[in-house]
Amino acid sequence: EIHIRTNGEEQARKVYKMLAKRNYDVKIEQHNGQWVVTAS
Rank of each mutant, 00 (worst) to 15 (best):
W35T: 01
V15W: 14
N23G: 15
E10Y: 08
G33N: 05
R22K: 11
D25E: 11
R22M: 15
D25N: 13
I2K: 03
R5C: 14
I4P: 01
V26L: 04
N32F: 06
Y24M: 08
R22I: 07
E9I: 14
H31K: 12
V36D: 03
K27Y: 07
G33Y: 03
V36L: 10
E9M: 09
E29N: 08
V26A: 05
Q30E: 10
R13Q: 09
V15T: 03
K17Q: 12
M18Y: 15
V37H: 00
A12P: 00
N23R: 06
D25K: 14
Q30W: 09
A39Y: 14
A20V: 13
W35D: 00
N32E: 10
K21R: 09
G8W: 12
E1G: 10
D25V: 14
K27G: 03
V36F: 12
N32W: 05
R22W: 14
V15A: 05
Q11F: 10
V26R: 01
I4N: 02
N32H: 07
T38Q: 04
Y16L: 07
T6M: 10
E9L: 15
I28A: 02
V37R: 00
S40I: 12
I28H: 00
V15C: 13
Y16Q: 08
E1I: 15
G33K: 04
A20F: 07
G8K: 13
N7K: 09
V37L: 04
E29D: 05
R13S: 04
R22V: 06
A20N: 05
H3N: 09
R13C: 14
N7G: 07
H3C: 15
R13G: 04
E1N: 09
S40D: 04
E29R: 07
E9W: 14
N7S: 11
V36Y: 12
Y24H: 05
Q11A: 09
Q11H: 12
Y24K: 05
Q11R: 06
A20Q: 14
Q30S: 08
M18W: 15
V36N: 03
V15L: 13
N7F: 09
H31P: 02
Q34G: 08
S40N: 08
E10L: 10
L19V: 02
R13Y: 11
K14M: 10
I2Q: 03
N7I: 07
A20W: 06
W35Y: 04
A12W: 02
T38K: 08
I4E: 02
K27M: 06
V37E: 00
K14D: 07
G8E: 13
G8N: 15
M18V: 08
E10K: 13
M18Q: 08
W35V: 01
A12D: 00
K27N: 05
R13F: 07
E1R: 13
N23S: 07
N23Y: 15
V36S: 05
V15S: 02
E10H: 07
E9H: 07
N32A: 08
Q30C: 14
N32S: 06
T38R: 07
N32R: 06
S40M: 10
A12V: 02
M18C: 15
A12F: 01
T38S: 07
K17A: 14
I28V: 05
I28E: 00
R13D: 03
Q30N: 13
T6A: 09
A12Q: 01
Y16F: 11
I28L: 07
G33H: 06
M18R: 06
R22P: 03
Q11I: 11
V36M: 08
Q34M: 13
H31A: 09
E10I: 09
R22S: 07
N32P: 02
R13I: 09
V15F: 09
K14H: 09
K17C: 14
N32I: 03
Q11T: 08
A20S: 10
G8T: 15
I2L: 08
H31G: 04
H3G: 03
R5F: 15
R22D: 08
V36P: 00
K14Y: 12
K17Y: 12
K14G: 05
Y16V: 06
S40W: 13
I28Q: 01
I4A: 01
M18I: 11
R22A: 12
S40A: 06
I2M: 06
R22L: 15
G8Q: 11
W35H: 01
N23E: 06
V26W: 02
T6L: 15
I28F: 03
V26E: 00
G8I: 13
V37I: 10
W35R: 00
V15Q: 02
V36G: 03
N7M: 07
E1M: 13
R5V: 15
N23M: 09
Q34P: 01
Q34W: 14
R5L: 14
H31V: 13
N23C: 12
G33I: 02
E1L: 14
K21D: 15
E9V: 08
L19D: 02
A39F: 13
E9R: 09
A39G: 06
M18E: 12
K21Q: 13
T6F: 15
I4W: 07
H3Q: 12
N7E: 10
H3F: 13
N7L: 09
K17I: 11
I2H: 05
A20Y: 07
W35I: 02
N7P: 06
E10Q: 10
A12L: 02
K14E: 10
Q34L: 09
M18N: 06
K17G: 06
K27F: 05
Q11V: 08
R5W: 15
H31W: 11
I2Y: 08
D25L: 13
N23V: 04
R22E: 09
E10R: 13
N23H: 14
H3L: 12
V37S: 00
R13N: 07
Y16H: 05
T38W: 08
G8Y: 14
E1A: 11
N7W: 12
K14A: 11
Q11E: 14
L19K: 01
T38H: 08
E29V: 11
K21Y: 09
Q11Y: 10
G33A: 04
W35E: 00
A12M: 03
E1T: 14
G8S: 15
E9N: 03
Q11W: 10
Y16I: 05
K21W: 08
E9F: 14
M18K: 06
E1W: 15
H31N: 09
K21P: 02
A39S: 05
N23D: 07
H3E: 11
R5T: 12
E9G: 04
K27S: 07
V26M: 02
G33M: 05
T6D: 02
G8H: 14
Y24E: 03
E1S: 12
N23K: 08
V36A: 04
A20M: 13
A12S: 02
A20D: 04
K14R: 12
K21S: 12
D25I: 14
Q34N: 07
I2R: 04
E29G: 07
L19T: 01
N32Y: 06
E10W: 10
E9P: 11
R13A: 05
E29H: 11
T38G: 02
V37G: 00
Q30H: 10
Y16S: 09
M18T: 06
K17W: 12
N7Y: 12
T38E: 03
T38N: 03
M18P: 01
V37F: 01
I4V: 07
N32G: 11
Q30L: 11
R5A: 08
H3M: 13
A20G: 04
Y24T: 04
N23L: 08
S40P: 05
N23I: 03
K21E: 15
Q34K: 08
W35M: 01
A12N: 00
K21T: 08
N23F: 15
R13T: 05
Y16P: 00
H3Y: 15
V15Y: 10
S40L: 09
Q11S: 07
V26D: 00
A12E: 00
R5Y: 15
I28D: 00
V36Q: 05
A20L: 15
E10P: 06
V36W: 14
G33D: 07
A12C: 09
H3R: 14
K27H: 10
I4K: 01
V37D: 00
V36T: 07
K14L: 12
E29A: 09
R22T: 06
S40T: 13
Q11L: 10
H31F: 12
K21L: 13
Y16K: 06
K14W: 14
V37A: 00
K17D: 15
S40V: 12
V15I: 15
A20H: 07
M18A: 12
A12T: 02
I2W: 14
Y24Q: 04
N7H: 09
K27T: 07
